[in-house]
């Protein structure tokens, strides 16, 4: 039995692309061992970060985060996370909405990263990172 290069090419493409498609579909690109990983991802550390409570109304938003106007007039940008993850948890706030965020500034960065954001109007809490500051969409977070 002989194989020519076209057959080899089809086998390689089918197996490798199949593997990539399958693992992407199952979400195994994000999850380090379904949460088994020791995790030090996206700038977060292994000890709990110093979390600050921020309160204000949303004045703008982009794919990655929101900017709130605090009571003292200060504008604060809060990075939420992966846009796909934000959508998957149903986080779709309106401009002007009052929110309370628990957030921290990761090492080497200047903007806040959200651990949780609460919509004051409904009391709905959206969780973006775990207590160690690990992004929940990365899978490296503590269970």
């Amino acid at each position: 039995m002989r194989l020519n290069s076209k057959v080899v090419g089809i086998i390689v493409l089918a197996v490798m692309f199949g593997g990539i498609y399958l693992t992407a579909g199952l979400g195994w690109w994000q999850t380090a061992g379904g949460g088994r990983g020791a995790g030090n991802h996206n700038g977060a550390g292994e000890s709990p970060p110093e979390v600050t409570v921020l309160r204000g109304s949303i004045i703008s938003s982009d794919r990655r985060g929101i900017t709130i106007a605090a009571a003292d007039g200060q504008s604060l940008y809060i990075e939420l996370g992966n846009p796909r993850y934000n959508r998957s948890i149903g986080f779709a706030p309106q401009l002007g909405e009052q929110v309370t965020a628990q957030a921290f500034i990761p090492e080497g960065k200047t903007a806040y990263s959200a651990v949780t954001v609460t919509l004051d109007r409904t009391g709905q809490v959206y969780v973006f990172r775990d207590t160690l500051g690990q992004p929940l969409w990365s899978g490296n977070h503590a269970e």
Binding site: L3, V15, M16, W28, W29, A32, G33, R36, G37, A38
Partner: peptide, 24 residues
């Protein structure tokens, strides 16, 4: 567990690469 930064997909892809290698 997995070491830092490694994903589950790496294990699956390794398995597939090894199968391909044993074949071709």
């Amino acid at each position: 567990g997995l070491i830092k930064k490694v994903r589950d997909s790496s294990i699956i892809l390794l398995g597939l690469v090894l199968i391909l290698s044993l074949l071709l």
